[in-house]
Simulated assay, not measured.
Amino acid sequence: MIPELGHFALALAIAIAGAQAVIGIFGPTMNDNRALRAAPALAIGLFGTVGASFLCLVYAGIVSDFTVRNVAEYSDSTTPLLYRITGTWGNHDGSILLWCLILTLCGATVATFGRNLPSSLRARVLGIHGLVCGGFLLFTLTVSDPFARIWPPPMHGAGVNPILQDPGLAFHPPVLYTGYVGFSVAFAFAVAALIEGRVDA
């Protein structure tokens, strides 16, 4: 049941990202104040739904739900709790979901702390960022689904990648992704500034 909720949250996130992109990019053109206010709310909501999806995957790893292929192939019930959690992103499918989580966190950060920006610029930044998020989320759901099921489930999982069974290496991907994904904000600002014809963004 929990993996299905995670899968649903991921699908819902794609819809929210699409709405954020359309409203954020085209709302300022229509001088619609509701659209300007909606873009930040959608960005925060997007982070919430992707966060919920990610927590569902972490939960599946903690309880060793081997009906989830991701857990069966990259975790084991005898693995220490820390590595059952970090094993969530110790593979392609889980790491892409982590990437999406950090990506949406960046958008939510702009929405929360960008109140001093011109409202049209902030909306367009969030719109472009929503477009980027939507692309990654669509890829995750269609090509790299972390909630794919297997049946019958194995008695034991394959275990966490031995390379990641070290605290430093286990937390290396989130730190690395934060640096990589953070540039999506700079990209969104650059494109939004081009759309608005601004040089001071």
Rank of each mutant, 00 (worst) to 15 (best):
residue 1 M to N: 10
residue 2 I to G: 04
residue 2 I to L: 14
residue 3 P to K: 01
residue 5 L to M: 14
residue 7 H to E: 11
residue 8 F to V: 15
residue 14 I to L: 13
residue 18 G to M: 12
residue 19 A to M: 14
residue 20 Q to M: 13
residue 20 Q to G: 04
residue 21 A to M: 02
residue 22 V to Y: 11
residue 24 G to P: 02
residue 28 P to F: 01
residue 29 T to N: 08
residue 30 M to A: 14
residue 30 M to Q: 10
residue 33 N to Q: 14
residue 35 A to I: 05
residue 36 L to F: 02
residue 40 P to C: 11
residue 41 A to I: 11
residue 41 A to P: 03
residue 46 L to S: 05
residue 47 F to W: 13
residue 48 G to H: 05
residue 49 T to G: 04
residue 49 T to R: 10
residue 50 V to A: 02
residue 51 G to Q: 09
residue 54 F to E: 09
residue 56 C to S: 12
residue 56 C to M: 13
residue 58 V to C: 07
residue 59 Y to K: 15
residue 62 I to Y: 12
residue 63 V to I: 14
residue 64 S to I: 10
residue 65 D to S: 06
residue 65 D to C: 09
residue 66 F to L: 15
residue 66 F to I: 07
residue 67 T to A: 11
residue 69 R to I: 09
residue 70 N to T: 08
residue 72 A to S: 04
residue 73 E to L: 13
residue 75 S to I: 13
residue 75 S to N: 14
residue 76 D to F: 05
residue 78 T to S: 11
residue 79 T to P: 08
residue 81 L to E: 09
residue 82 L to H: 05
residue 82 L to Q: 07
residue 82 L to Y: 05
residue 83 Y to A: 04
residue 83 Y to T: 07
residue 85 I to E: 02
residue 86 T to I: 04
residue 88 T to G: 04
residue 89 W to V: 12
residue 90 G to M: 06
residue 93 D to V: 13
residue 94 G to P: 02
residue 94 G to V: 04
residue 95 S to W: 04
residue 96 I to G: 04
residue 98 L to R: 05
residue 100 C to R: 08
residue 100 C to S: 12
residue 101 L to N: 03
residue 101 L to Q: 03
residue 101 L to E: 01
residue 103 L to M: 14
residue 104 T to M: 11
residue 106 C to I: 12
residue 110 V to H: 00
residue 111 A to T: 02
residue 124 R to V: 01
residue 133 C to W: 00
residue 135 G to A: 02
residue 137 L to G: 01
residue 138 L to H: 09
residue 138 L to Y: 12
residue 139 F to Y: 14
residue 141 L to P: 03
residue 142 T to L: 15
residue 144 S to P: 05
residue 150 I to T: 08
residue 150 I to D: 06
residue 152 P to F: 04
residue 153 P to N: 11
residue 153 P to W: 04
residue 157 G to T: 03
residue 157 G to R: 01
residue 159 G to L: 03
residue 165 Q to L: 15
residue 170 A to I: 03
residue 176 L to K: 12
residue 177 Y to R: 12
residue 179 G to Q: 09
residue 180 Y to C: 15
residue 184 S to P: 11
residue 186 A to N: 05
residue 186 A to G: 06
residue 187 F to T: 05
residue 188 A to H: 01
residue 190 A to I: 02
residue 191 V to T: 00
residue 193 A to H: 00
residue 194 L to V: 05
residue 194 L to H: 06
residue 197 G to Y: 00
residue 201 A to E: 00
